Computed example of a mutant assay.
Amino acid sequence: MKRRRFVLGLSTSVILPTLAKAQQRKRRPRLGALITIGSEAQDRIAALNRGLRVRGWTDGENLEIEYHWADGSKQRIAEIANVLVNSRPDLILAHSSPSVPPLLRLTQDIPIVFVQVSDPVGQGFVKNLTRPGGNVTGFAAFEFSVAGKWVELLKELSPNVDRIGILYNPTTTPYDQYVVHGKAAADALGIPLTQVEVRDRGEINLILGKFGERPGGGLVLLPDPFTSIHREAIVDTAARLGVSAIYPYRAYVDSGGLCSYSYDVSDLFFRSATYVDRILRGEKAGDLPVQLVTRYQLVFNLKTAKRMGLTLPPTLLARADEVIE
């Protein structure tokens, strides 16, 4: 009887670890994604999934992806960050600058890959671009110096601009250094630059209306979850008031905006799959260099220019990557 108990105990001690190992082998790694805005998100998620499939990962087969949508709300971003970290995924994908600080405050061990983040070194997310260190790396978006290029383009496409407003929501975008570079370019052109802050949907018409009360105003929009969510209202108001504007993403021009100077956002999500793959296969986030945007696209909407009574310089149109007619 004692021998039977021993054999049963021995068998159990062998079987249970074997079952546990089998279950572990079957367990699919989990990727938690914090997406700050929903507009255009489907295209970007499709690009991420294409990139993952190229590298052998398919959501629902050998990988589980959990998407969380913040809809541009700073409070919602913080709540999702807390939920994600507590759920202990194998990896977190963090979309845009506002999503990174709450995640870094909550975890120093779960790997984080950020996408569409401005100046990650300047914001203190990584030590340097070559060896980020810690548990975070990713794909940077604009460098702050691009604000100077936006100001120069605005003056070039609309020579009559005699004052420039740089528009953003101070609670949802890192605006300080954009303003510094934008002001330097405006000063060089002899044009005053003012900060135009909007914090809710109701302020868009009111504040843009005041800015557009007299001719000669031009706008530079900063990359910002808030302005992206409300891009149609901003585009419509600017065009109606005859205010020339440079936008940070192609989607604004598709919605009727005058001009954008940006990068392919979906391509950035596609490329982010390379780091998701490498980290899931054992590499450390802090050892992977931060990747930068290598190509910008200049896009114009001629229909909007005609609606505003604006003739775009041929030399500028010749440099365009695309012209919407």
Rank of each mutant, 00 (worst) to 15 (best):
D162H: 14
G32K: 00
L157F: 14
K21I: 06
R105A: 11
E325S: 05
L208Y: 01
R201A: 12
K284V: 06
S158M: 14
L193G: 02
S262M: 06
R214Y: 00
P289N: 12
R76D: 01
P132R: 11
T130R: 15
L298K: 05
E213S: 05
G217D: 02
R240K: 14
K74Y: 07
E152M: 04
G72V: 04
P102Y: 09
D200H: 01
M1D: 15
R28N: 03
I164A: 02
N128L: 06
S272H: 08
L103E: 01
L157D: 05
D267S: 06
K284P: 01
Q116A: 14
S118D: 12
L221G: 03
G60K: 06
P289M: 14
Y67A: 00
T311K: 11
G212L: 10
N301P: 12
R76W: 00
R201V: 13
P314I: 05
G282A: 03
E232M: 06
T130L: 14
M1L: 13
T294H: 14
V146N: 03
T137K: 11
S13H: 00
L241D: 09
A22P: 01
Y252D: 08
K155Q: 08
V126S: 04
V115M: 08
Q116Y: 06
A140D: 13
N301K: 09
E203L: 03
L310D: 12
P225F: 03
G256I: 03
R88E: 13
I234Q: 11
A320Q: 11
D90Q: 07
D287I: 06
S11I: 15
L241F: 04
L153T: 01
A184R: 14
L106Y: 12
L316H: 05
N86W: 00
R28D: 01
L104Q: 12
I45D: 11
A70C: 09
P29C: 02
F211S: 08
R4M: 10
R76P: 00
R163P: 00
L221R: 04
R4D: 11
L310A: 10
L288W: 05
R319C: 05
L222Y: 05
L91T: 00
F139R: 02
E203C: 05
S39N: 10
L34F: 01
T58P: 03
H95G: 03
E152D: 13
L292V: 04
V83D: 14
V253S: 05
R295H: 11
I37N: 02
R55S: 12
T58I: 09
G133R: 14
V121R: 07
P111K: 14
L280E: 09
V161L: 11
P289R: 12
P17V: 04
R240F: 08
K155C: 05
P159F: 15
Y249W: 12
D187Y: 10
L10V: 10
K183G: 02
T304E: 10
A46Q: 09
N135M: 14
D254S: 11
F139Y: 15
L310W: 14
P215M: 10
S262F: 09
V161H: 13
F114Q: 00
L241T: 08
G124C: 10
Y263G: 05
R105P: 02
E143G: 14
T18G: 08
K21M: 07
D176C: 01
H181C: 04
R307T: 15
S244C: 07
H230A: 09
I191D: 03
